[in-house]
Design a protein around this nucleic acid. Sequence first.
DNA 1: AATACAAACTGGAATGATTCCGAAGTGGAA
DNA 2: TTCCACTTCGGAATCATTCCAGTTTGTATT
Lengths: 140, 140
Amino acid sequence: MKEDLISQLKEKGLKLTPQRLAIIDVLVENCDGHPGVTLIFNEACKKAKRVSLSTVYATLKEFSENGLIKQMEFDRMENRYDVDPSDHINLICNRCGKIVDYRLPATLEPRDIARRSGFVVTDTRMEFHGYCRDCLKRPD
Amino acid sequence: MKEDLISQLKEKGLKLTPQRLAIIDVLVENCDGHPGVTLIFNEACKKAKRVSLSTVYATLKEFSENGLIKQMEFDRMENRYDVDPSDHINLICNRCGKIVDYRLPATLEPRDIARRSGFVVTDTRMEFHGYCRDCLKRPD
DNA sequence: AATACAAACTGGAATGATTCCGAAGTGGAA
DNA sequence: TTCCACTTCGGAATCATTCCAGTTTGTATT
């Protein structure tokens, strides 16, 4: 897992810095927890001599642009990062904020999700990003 | 549609103010466009004597808390508002930002969506909010 | 091992959507 | 008409995130 991320870094031509190694360590250690920037920053500081918040942001952005991780953007919460970049539904608890992965393909009926996972859905939000018909026609 | 929203306001015990009526007008006129705060604010200013941005935010929050509309939160875009609060997938164009509704139930295969709607999916994000198994067990 | 340069890091300032707050205004029930 | 809880106002505060200009550092090459 860790070695995997490091080799992906090299493949992409990205440099191996102490800060990036620290961040990778944190990501791997928290791969089930969908860690946020604050946690990653705090933990990374313990592992590397110098780490700035700007670097953490830049690095996580770099990683997600290169497909190593998946950025989960929220409006009033800080970003969370998913070490598994494959498609799945994130079950987000209103109360504790815990994020549980629910893998696709699966029935999307809330009733069915409750039966399989014990998670009661009160609100759904699904977004598929891409390109609309009109923009596909247009050149450039 | 407009009368419908107004009667819902009354049902909830919310007062009918010129600002709210203006905002409702804007929502109804732009119900297919998933309008954002800026558009709503600008248009509402044309319809009512005095409207402040704070009021627009407060009103839209009030409306969505009461189920009149659905708030769509993004990270780097301003919120958009959906006059149709039922569950559906929002197809968001990376390029023009247009949001197209894709109704459930439907096959969720990107390939299928492309065939039916002409929308090419490049990235998906689905969130189901609710309560996890652990929190349901816990009292209070 | 030394050199060179693009890439990466830093931290403080800037951004921008949203919320907060205290004061002023106003629907609408009595 | 009176009254008051609900609304509105606008400016300040918040807070995650980005930007920027200067400094440091991997790493490929000599």
